[in-house]
Design a binder for these strands. Sequence first.
DNA 1: CATTTTATGTTAAAATATTAACAGTATGCG
DNA 2: CGCATACTGTTAATATTTTAACATAAAATG
Lengths: 207, 207
Amino acid sequence: MDTKNISQAVISRLPRYYRYLGDLKDEGTERISSGELSDIMKVTASQIRQDFNNFGGFGQQGYGYNVEYLYDEIGKILGLNEAHHLIIVGAGNLGRALTNYSNYENRGFIFEGIFDHDPSLIGKKIGELTVMPMDELEDFIISRNIDIVVIAIPKTGAVSVADRVVRCGIKAIWNFAHTDLNVPEGVVVENVHLSDSLMKLSYMLTQ
Amino acid sequence: MDTKNISQAVISRLPRYYRYLGDLKDEGTERISSGELSDIMKVTASQIRQDFNNFGGFGQQGYGYNVEYLYDEIGKILGLNEAHHLIIVGAGNLGRALTNYSNYENRGFIFEGIFDHDPSLIGKKIGELTVMPMDELEDFIISRNIDIVVIAIPKTGAVSVADRVVRCGIKAIWNFAHTDLNVPEGVVVENVHLSDSLMKLSYMLTQ
DNA sequence: CATTTTATGTTAAAATATTAACAGTATGCG
DNA sequence: CGCATACTGTTAATATTTTAACATAAAATG
């Protein structure tokens, strides 16, 4: 069910499917066809079937897809069946927003700690978490089995933080810094470049 | 220099070029070739040349590209030569983070106001801005010539806010709500679905 | 000032991704 | 229980995107 090289385009669409299927499940919809889903999501039915079939057949001819089953399966593909343990580096506005955001939006992603180098922030409570100093970073990651690090600091510090966490075994970085990170083979980075996103909007608006 | 249907893929890459060119400019680099840029950015030189040529020839054979000129031109393409006036709907953690974020990161994007429906937040200061009540939304948009609305509220309210702002002429929405917005032809939406992004990371980590 | 080098703009080829078509199977209904 | 219908899974066609190739023009060199 995995490593045969699924394209980035397909992967990017999976969370959206997951979202719509979750909504359908909540509404009590039991089954859905690629055609109906196509209408709701505004993508072709063909694409939906192709996408799902990258991971095996989840549907049944003449019936369609069972919503709950499909939802669960996509969840598994996305790795949501097991919990992830995160820390946030950077207790600025964005770090704080993400801490809080997690509580009600992202089950399965457990925010275990938040770090900052600013002495005036250390010890402060942010939601359930207490800001920790940067020199405790490595110990915390290792002792708490952290698997995802969120980088929410300005770009000047981002690269060195990435290096530090990679050195203690982190394999996934959610990067909000306004720069690209160079990481070794086997480490994945998901960038959220807000400025890039805003510029794209500006472009579209200008047309 | 415009409407001949530039692909989404190209547009998505423009801000990244802009970022790297800005860095090069700051370092004092005067000229650069597609080959050198290719090395730095880890994309093919061919793609770089193709991308730029969608908008006309910015370089010179045997010389390459003038960094500052190219930077400015891409800025213009992205619509960064004129200021944009934004408001944020939602004074929660995310809204607050974006307000502050803007100050030091995004010149040319001017955050003019922030709104919330929660009475306990109205009147509070967030950076330079004061939280305003939702019933002043339309008047403010019109009187201040707002051209971009940032939606930073939970999905339950997002759709109706989008409808409201579209009705008073807004053509661009930066959507952080965990839902898709249905907008009429001519209105553009740039989604920042943080959960989707995190799920993508989870997928990559699982592989 | 001629010659070599460099590097673009552009055309052509290859690789990917999307859409359409269809064969075949389960379902639902009479 | 058989027949029509409704769908998927999958293969084929089309469209798009990316990469490579190359002809040409400016720049550098001696």
